[in-house]
């Protein structure tokens, strides 16, 4: 089966600083792949390259078989994108943003969005810009659920969230993924959330992949340790 995400020989520099050289990885359908790494190792960079928002020095990425700089509108419709910081069009209110997005996706699930938002105790006319970080993250998640994409790309989904909202996010995400053979590619630097969520993980270090394994195999190799312990062991303390 063709992988949903495929990156081949990605090399990128910021100025003279090497981010990665000949980075290769794949994400199979139905898997949740977590990209872990310290700050500055290039997690957001690979998200940007994947979505065609950054031109690497060399190499190619494909999603659903399409090159990252030539994604068709149909393919983009199958991808749900969460930007770092849960960035959304914050000049909309709760109702407006749903109305805006609903027209782009024929299978839009309105109920999924509003069901999630019920729990937030926000009014339909509340502007997103007036919401807390946690509330904004739920709006972003609700929009993704309503879109019902085949592939979710989540850049640092836990950024700015307190433990309560982080746990909520992870639970909803897991439930969503399990409901229908979704593929997820996510990045984070909060390791404890990833342990119960991801199937496979890639640990990035400066300039290279340190490790690419299934979570199960990784934890079996390091019994008694949490994923965070393993991460620190592999990448070293600051």
């Amino acid at each position: 089966m063709a992988p949903v995400i495929q990156c081949e020989n990605i090399t990128h520099y910021y100025g003279n600083r090497l981010i990665y050289k000949d980075l290769n990885f794949e994400v199979q359908k139905g898997k949740i792949l977590g990209l872990l790494g310290k700050n500055g190792t290039g997690k957001t960079t690979i998200i940007n390259i994947l979505n065609g928002y950054l031109k690497p020095q060399s190499g190619i990425c494909r999603m659903f078989g399409e090159s990252m700089d030539k994604l068709t509108p149909q393919t983009k419709g199958r991808i749900g994108l969460l930007l770092e910081g849960h960035i959304q069009h914050s000049y909309f209110n709760v109702r407006q943003i749903e109305r805006y997005y609903s027209r782009f996706f024929p299978n839009w699930k309105r109920d999924a969005y509003f069901r999630l938002l019920e729990k937030l105790q926000v009014t339909p006319t509340q502007k997103i810009s007036t919401m807390s970080c946690g509330q904004r993250s739920q709006v972003a998640l609700g929009l993704l659920f309503a879109q019902d994409p085949d592939l979710l790309i989540l850049d640092d989904f836990s950024m700015g969230l307190d433990p309560g909202y982080r746990r909520l996010f992870v639970e909803y995400l897991k439930e969503f993924v399990e409901s229908g053979n979704k593929t997820v590619f996510l990045t984070s630097h909060i390791i404890q959330d990833m342990e119960m969520l991801i199937d496979d993980c890639i640990i990035l270090d400066y300039g290279k992949i340190l490790l690419h394994k299934s979570t199960k195999a990784l934890m079996e190799e390091h019994p008694g340790q949490t994923m965070e312990d393993v991460f620190i062991e592999l990448t070293g303390k600051y």
Partner: peptide
Amino acid sequence: PTPNPLKGA
């Protein structure tokens, strides 16, 4: 304009 690194890929 920057050249396309994918040209020929």
